[in-house]
Nucleic acid binder design. Structure first.
Length: 219
DNA sequence: GCGACAG
DNA sequence: ATCTTGTCGC
């Protein structure tokens, strides 16, 4: 585990934040579902701005690392990458159900994923890991900066009026403002961005079909 | 010593 | 993340 932390610290300097994103055509989303020590990673690709699912893939894996705040990548990344390898299409940007640089060492799961795929990535988490921020106004689209150790690391964004805000941060090769723009552009009637939501649905679907198939084999 | 702590 | 029924609301 000490090694894991050391590796993240080495990767940190390689995070670059390009000023703007290329024209968005395809947006990816990932999610990981658990069934005890078994995990199912799902990745989907949606067309933009239609937000229709154009591709999807899943991969099954087994936990080989415990859940430690700040080291989520060591637990989920291998299976997520396996799912991505089964994907045909290449998204212009990928959204993660986790943090990007809003992380103790500025390299959360979203950063690891974008770095490994060499695809711009964005972290969009439901809860805070690190950082401080002012209150966010209730209207959809409101956002306040998230800072950590004196550095801007993301934004707290209201994706639905009156609903708890989400924590958005650059994963890899994206700016904070572009990250916020992408999250808001893919979020209309739910709190989480559509790519992440669809990935979650796919992961849960796969988990159910898998457990159902195994129980049929047993009986 | 007492909290905080992505999924 | 996951364990879990009903229930309030659009």
């Amino acid at each position: 585990m000490e090694d894991a932390i050391a590796l993240q610290q080495e990767l940190e300097p390689r995070v670059d934040t390009r000023p703007s994103l290329p024209a968005l055509r395809l947006i990816g989303g990932i999610h990981v579902a658990y069934a005890g020590d078994d995990l199912i990673a799902a990745v989907v690709v949606l067309g933009f701005p239609a937000l229709d699912v154009v591709a999807g893939a899943t991969a099954a894996g087994r936990t080989t690392f415990p859940y430690v705040p700040g080291l989520l990548a060591w637990r989920e990344l291998p299976t997520v990458l396996a799912a991505c390898e089964r994907l045909r299409s290449q998204p212009d940007v990928i959204l993660c159900d986790a943090h990007g640089i809003a992380h103790p060492r500025r390299f959360g799961l979203a950063s690891h994923l974008g770095y490994c795929l060499d695809v711009p990535s964005i972290g969009c988490a439901r809860r805070r890991l690190v950082g401080e921020h002012e209150p966010v106004a209730a209207a959809r689209g409101s956002r306040v900066g998230l800072t950590h150790a004196g550095a801007p690391v993301g934004a707290v964004v209201r994706t639905r009026a009156g609903v708890k805000p989400v924590f958005v941060s650059p994963g890899f090769a994206v700016s904070v403002s572009d990250a916020v723009d992408v999250v808001l552009a893919t979020t209309l009637r739910y709190r989480m961005p559509e790519p992440i939501r669809r990935a979650q649905l796919l992961a849960n679907e796969k988990k159910r079909r898998t457990s159902a198939a195994s129980s049929v084999t047993v009986s």
